[in-house]
Amino acid sequence: MSIKTTLSAALAAGTLAFGAAALADSHGGEAEEGKAMGDKALVILTSDSLETQGMAMILANAMQQQGTDLQLLLCDQAGDLAMEGYQSTQPINTPPSNPAGQVTPEGIMQMLMNKGAQVDVCAIYLPNRDYGEEVLREGVGIAAPGPIAELMRDPSVPVFNF
């Protein structure tokens, strides 16, 4: 390998590293072994609005793609997303810049779970509907107030409410 080729490769690697650091910094943190600082987040979803549910899941997906370890807490009408067989009344359209086209909140939620996100319903969701755990999608849990309160109190864990 010539010195010119070696220098070109080193310059390209340095440019890529600088670009990745700049991108991470523009999103509020520095890159650390592929993960952003503050790599955990709690998303609490209560809305029954299809667009709000969809946007919450789209943003959660973007956070997960940027290296965030997600915990989703579904309460009130949003808890229905966690029920096996639940289907939104219609798909939502994504922005023209997103090639996904039409998606559903529960479809994105399932994708998030497949990539490691923890999804739970509020502790009072099932008892207030006379349902048992058997109605929940595989992998969805029931949140215990103590651990959720710990996450909410942890200043290093951002909490997003929709």
Rank of each mutant, 00 (worst) to 15 (best):
A117R: 05
D120R: 05
D76T: 05
I58A: 05
T94P: 06
T94C: 09
Q77Y: 09
I3N: 15
L126E: 12
D69R: 04
V159M: 08
I124P: 07
T68S: 03
P147T: 06
N161F: 04
Q118L: 01
A22P: 04
A149N: 10
M63H: 05
L112V: 13
G67Q: 03
A20C: 14
M113V: 04
L112M: 12
L42M: 10
S26P: 05
Y86M: 12
R137L: 13
Q90V: 11
Q64L: 01
M37V: 08
L50T: 10
E51Y: 11
K40I: 00
Y125D: 07
L72W: 02
G107C: 11
L74G: 08
L45M: 13
L50Y: 15
E133L: 12
E138R: 11
E106K: 05
N161D: 02
L7V: 10
Q65W: 04
V159E: 06
V119D: 03
G146A: 07
M152D: 02
A36L: 10
T89S: 15
Q53H: 04
A21P: 02
I58G: 00
E106R: 03
D69P: 01
P155Q: 13
M1V: 15
V103N: 01
D69W: 02
G19H: 00
V157K: 06
E134S: 13
A17L: 15
Q77F: 12
F18P: 00
M57G: 03
Q118C: 00
M109Y: 06
T5L: 15
N128T: 13
A62S: 07
L81G: 05
D130E: 10
S88I: 15
G116D: 00
G141P: 07
E134G: 10
T46G: 10
P155S: 12
Q71R: 08
L72D: 02
A143F: 00
Q77H: 11
E150M: 09
V43T: 06
L11S: 15
